[in-house]
Structures are given as C-alpha cells and as structure tokens.
Design a protein around this nucleic acid. Sequence first.
RNA 1: GCGGACGUGGCGAAACUGGUAGACGCACGGGACUUAAAAUCCCUCGCCCCUACGGGCAUGCGGGUUCGAGUCCCGCCGUCCGCACCA
Length: 842
Amino acid sequence: MSRFNALTADAKWQAVWDERATFAADDASPKPKSYVLEMFPYPSGKIHMGHVRNYTMGDVLARFRRMTGHEVLHPMGWDAFGMPAENAAMEKGVHPGAWTYQNIAAMKAQLKRLGFALDWSRELATCDPGYYGHEQALFLDLLAAGLVYRKESAVNWDPVDMTVLANEQVIDGRGWRSAAVVEKRKLSQWFLKITDFADELLDGLSTLDQWPDKVRLMQENWIGKSEGLTFGFTVADDVSATSPIADERRIAVYSTRPDTIFGASFVAVAADHPIALELAAVNADAAGFIEQCKAGGTTAAELETQEKLGFDTGLKVRHPFDSGWMLPVFIANFVLMDYGTGAVMGVPAHDQRDLDFARKYGLEVRRVVADDDAADPVFAGEEAYTGPGRLVNSAFLDGLSVTDAKRAVIERAEAGGWGQGSTVWRLRDWGVSRQRYWGTPIPIIHCEACGVVPVPKEQLPVVLPEDVSFDVPGNPLDRHPSWKHVACPSCGGAARRETDTLDTFVNSSWYFIRFASQPEDQPFDRAVAEQWLPVGQYIGGVEHAILHLLYARFWTRALRRVGRIDVAEPFAGLFTQGMVTHETYQDPAGAWLSPDEVADGRVVATGEPVTVGRVEKMSKSKKNTVDPSPIVDRYGADAVRWFMLSDSPPERDLPWSEAGIEGAWRFVQRLWRLATPDGAPVTDSPDHDLAKRVHRTTAAVASDIEALQFNKAVARLYELTSAIEKAAPSTDREAAITTLLQLVAPMVPHLAEEAWALRGNDGLIADATWPTVDPALLVDDEVTIAVQVNGKLRDTLTAAKGAAKDALEAAALASPAVQRTLEGKEPKKVVVVPDRLVNIVA
RNA sequence: GCGGACGUGGCGAAACUGGUAGACGCACGGGACUUAAAAUCCCUCGCCCCUACGGGCAUGCGGGUUCGAGUCCCGCCGUCCGCACCA
C-alpha cells in the first residue's frame, strides 16, 4: 500500500488552489459573508510556531465556513513598518525597505507551504505607499475633525541612538540597544484624542459578548473610569503671606471619597506640581526633595519597597466646610502629576497610603466611617478602613451611608461653587509621533507664516525618500537635504516637512478594513467594507489585549465619527490563542541548548548529560525554538496542521514535541490507508451503527469547530476513524470514508484533496459542502443506565430510551451486584433519573 | 498590593444545565507479523489490597450542601497572567 506523499501532494494542490483562485473572496456573492482574520505578522524574516498555530486555527474555521455555505474573506498581509528594519539597516547596511520586502517574500513562501486558504489577491504591506498614503488621508480626516492635536510632552530619549524609545524599550532606565541612560525630554508630539472616546470604548465592551472576559476586563481596567469630586482648597492668607506663593489662591484636588472629607488631615501635591516647582525656585530644600523624588525608580519592585516621603511646604489650606480648620500641604513622592489634578486630599483613617504617610509624619488620623459602633474619632489601627458603613464625626453627614454622603458632599460643593462632581480616566491620549524613518510620514508641513499646514490630499501620498543613510544615529528624515524642505502649500513660502512618522500601531488600526475593500483612489469603499465588517472571528495572541485591540477599536469609532464608515466595533468575535512551548535544556555548565543539540538526554557534541528544564514559551534566549520550515518539509503541511490542533485546548499553551508531530504524521498516513481503495468486495448490507456514528460525529465536529474547540474535534475524528477501520466492508462504510474526508478537510486539506480525487469525486473538496446531518440518527433508542448504591457505581444496565421509572427501579434492584451490596437490607429510598441512573440509598 | 485564570494518571487532556471520572492522543510495557528491523495490527496501562472473584482510595488541601460533587458554597495552599503609589 502506498504512503501519502505529502511533498508532492502539498505542492500539487497548493498550485491548483492558486490557479483556480479557490479562496478569493467575492464582494458580490449573494451568500452570507464571513470574515475570518488572524493578526497579521511583522515580517521579521521567518515564521515561527506561534504563527503556524494561529494561522492553522483561522484556516480551519475559514475552510469550515466555506463548506457551510458562507462567502469567506480570509486575507493575509504584513505589518511591515517598525524598528527592526532600521536596526538591520544600521547593522547590515541594507535599506529597511529592501530588508522588509525580502523578509516578506521568504515568509510568504513559508505560509504558502502550509496550504492556508488565503485570498492572496488582497495581500497588503503597510510600508507600501499604496497603503500608508491612504492612512495619511485618514489622519487628515481626523485632524479636520479635531481628533488630532499637537502638544509638548515628555518622552524617553536615548541620547546615543538619538531617538525616542517606547516604555517597553527602556530597561532599568537604560536604552535597550545602546545601554545609555535614558533622558526625559520635552518634544512636540502629535496626539490622537482617544480620551474623547473613553466612554464609548468602555460601554462598547459590554456589546462584545464573543470576546474573552479577560480581555474585556483588561481593557476596562486600562480605560480606568473613576468618579468623584474635583474641588479646591483655598490657601490660607495668613500663613501664605510669608510664603512666596501668596498669590496662588487654590489647590485643586480630586477624590473618589468626598464623603470622607471631614477625615482629611493633609493635602499632598506631586513633585512636578506647579506649586512644588514654584516653591523649589526659592527653596533649596524643596528643590532637593523634588530631585530625590525623580531619582526614585519606577519598577514594580522599587515601588513596592519605596517609602512614602513628604516635604512640608509650610503652606496651609482651609477646609471647605470650616474656614478655621487649617490643613498642611506636603509635596509627596506618591502623588502623580498626570492623574487627576496632581494633588490629593489625605484621609488617613480610610486610605492605606494616607495612613502610612500620616503615621510617619505624626498627622491626625480621624475616623469618619464606622462599620460598627466604633465611633471613636481617634483611629488607632494600622489598617485603613475602606469598606462600607455610616458616617461619624462628620457634621451634617453623620449617619449617612458612604454612597449618600458622597452625593451630599458633591451637591454642596457644586452649590457652593467650590467643587464639581467629575469623572477621571486612567486612559491617556495616544501619542503617535515617532522620530523614526521606517513609518508612515505624518502629512503635515510647518510654515513660519501659516503654522501647521496639512498636506493637501491631492499631494498624497507623502512618500518616504529612498536615499537615506543609517551610518549616523537619529532620524534620517531629519537630516535629509531635500525631502525635508518644501514650499508651504498655503503661502508658497519656505517651509519644513514634519519628519516624525506615525506609531506602527496606527498601521494595524485599520488594515482589516483595507482587506475588505482596497480601491486605488481611496482608503476603502464604504459600502463594500460594510458588507464584510465587523470581522466575525479575529484570532491572535493575548499580548495585544490592550494596545492593538484598543487602538483599532478607537480608530474604527473615529472613522465612524468622521463619516467614513458606519461600524462601531471592528471585531465581533475575538479569540486569544495560547503559545507554543517546548522543554528547555542546559549543559552541565548551565548554557542553554537547542533541541537539536540534544539526543537521549546527552549533548550530541560532547556526550555530557543534559539537564531538562521546564516547558516554556519558545524563545531565542532559552534556545528552545523549533523552526517550522524543516518540520513541514519532513512531515508535510497536514501533519503539522493536525498537531497544532490536537491535544491542547487552543487557548492554552501547546507543548511542542517530536513525539507529538510523529503521532500526527502517523494519523495522516492512517487516514490515507483508510481512504485508498483496496479493491476488497463491498457488500450492500447496511451498517446502521456506523451510519449513526458518522452523523453524530458530523454534528459534533461542526459545533466543536464553531466553538474553536479543535482538540475535541480531533478526538472525535480519531474515534470515527477507528470505528470505520473496524467496520466490515459495505456501501455504508464507503460512504463513511467519504464523509470522514469532508470532516477532516478543513484540518488536513492536502490529504483530503488527494484522497477525494483518488476516490473519483468531482471537483475540489475545498469546494464541497459540509455533510448534512439527519437529526433522527442523532437520537439513541437505547441508553446505558448507571446503577449506584449510596452513590457508588455497582452496575450498569441497558434500557430503552425513555423507559419508565418503575421499570428502571425494578431492573436496578434485580441486579445481582446490587443484591450483593445490599446484603438483604431494605432500600430507604431510590432516586431514579430517567435515561441516566438509579441510585439506591440503603 | 489590586484584579483575573488555573490546579484531574508518567505527560497533553475529556467529562452536557450536579448524575458511570480519566474519552482521545503521547509515552511506557507485552504480543502478532518478519530471518531481522522498520512499518502495521492487537492487548495492558490512576493508586492500593487480592491468585482470582471482588473490594478500598482517588480530580491541590480542609470543611459544607446533596440520594449523588471534578462541577455548587466557605476557608486554606500552590502556579501562571495582567495592572500597579490611579487618590
């Protein structure tokens, strides 16, 4: 019997699918539309196992949807801008564009080799002017709508590489590449007004019922809505007369606990609060303290251990409800300038941080919320009370609940004109300026006379110049002789082009719309795009749970606001898949070893014993990566795809192993043997049991795939395969084999095509429909009943489905095993669950 | 610190709304075929006691609810993830 030759079959069917454009999506199709999308890759040079797993899952769903009568859009493209291309340019002297396009070609070949049902005619790369030019147009739309602005902002500046670094690229205060100490620098940056959409983005989460709760929660926390009171403390004249800040009348604070206002014992401002800075200008001690605050680290561990420190400014403020009550003002290292108003009211009894601070500086700790009878105004504990209760020691608030007291204080503040109920968000506007070459040029011209001038749309795209060099650090656009200097579109005078480029997250914020519709003269055709959107199923790594997914949601809503498209949420269904992991190996010296340096527990080269470490995410640093390409060459695309779907639930990590891929390969061969006609005589005698099994598996596998529970579908397919193997030759068996091929087709498409053709079927199995299920065959007429005594299984019996309770009880009591266990005792009670079990309580 | 997820054989895991725990796969062991090997096929495979029949114990630990708990409730322990001085 022949073996399935994956090498030739893969190439053959991939070519056929290509020639016939089998997977091209038809915008005009009358079928229901289904948009299946996996997060597009960064063209780093090679695909990795994570890509293979991600794209295999999407592919199974896409092929399944085609078989169930959908017009499927399943595209692929390249998230092609970004720093690695510039790093390669600096290290190897290649142009970022050349490097990127080489990588794209290599990775595309690798993806093709896996036989994904992709519509390659819609392939796009974000570094193509044909893409980013339209992005520039969209940016200008947002600018015109007031959703883009420019402001000075502090950035992480690497003084050696002369560039801005993202927070993720700053490790222990140093640049990840240069190891130079990173400076905070003020630069004029472009921002997108994502905070305008904070409410919408938060409320929209509740409509995303096909998203993992975890991701929704992460976004909710990131948006960070909180409600409270913003109000002013008046600086007391008598004290401040001696202070240099006598003309500063009020200090605004924000509190989510206005109810505790009578428990306040101090006000604290951030080290970079205007008041702190003014004081520092005339007071060396204050200046020293502020420096000390800035020096403190910001890593988790450092914050954990960092002491709460304060500097008494000598200023006093008046309590809003008692002008004779003076509160000291501190500069404190735990107050953040960029949250709320940069100043807080300290209520030690009911906030742990305030309590720590008050104990350290000997401030009053006054109880104003009591959870029981403890109304003593002196709060003695070391743990602040933050729970519910009634107000005490609080004048007109006494006796109110926390909720009512909050409302009462806000009302009074608003009536008295000294405060305002307010909502504060953690979410910040999105800074999109990057001092980088390899990104979308921001389509803006700076003119001395006219100021900021948008590039007229007819002059788009603003194309990146090719003639750039990376031999000096910094942004080559900034020192380009001609590109940078242009005439002002408005007055014609000498002007300067914006040399910053857009954050790459902008590129990935609308690529799914461009996939749906890609005319040359505009970013997308609204009507066509709306046919496909939202994406029905989006699949990718959980590492994008916040940034990419939040930015894309924002960008889509922003496009809706400017009238470009009427879609609120871009991704109706989201699935975050687990990682591919592998064992780790170390030699006796502790050096990491790659899997192919190890055999039989020994280092191949030296014969030394190997320490096998834990199973971890594949990473270069631990050397536990496995390159998919040689594996695909050796076992074929189908075995790799099958392994990716087997065993582990898709949201969990998948441990890669040699034995696992071998097992998958064996199954592919097993299917092949089963599907290859062996010339044995076939009888007409019906095989009812097998037919039932086929229908049941068809229904179950369909619902498993819909739910993305591929591991369960795989298990059922194993069972069906075994059952068919064991069945005697018959026409039913032959039909079962044909159905089995249809069921496995989304997973192992090459083998399915080859066997489909071999068995004389017309057309491609890729174009076949999903087998229909006869509901009548899904029902059992016999069921197995568990027989328990005191909840313990003693016997099982077979009964007709729907058998009467009495009959089941009688049959159970008659069981010899039951009689033996009862030892003549009378049953006290018998519980009968029809079609399930009988439990005899003795 | 706050929030979340998870904990089932040697391993990856199944188990519908509480109803036969361990489906399916991997590994290990035994057997058939073969001169031999590979490939393939068959059998065993949670732990303990027993020759066997059979029985006991088992879903991180301790309680509880129930005729019946992997599943529900309470309290611990552990692992992983996210956020983090957010007022």
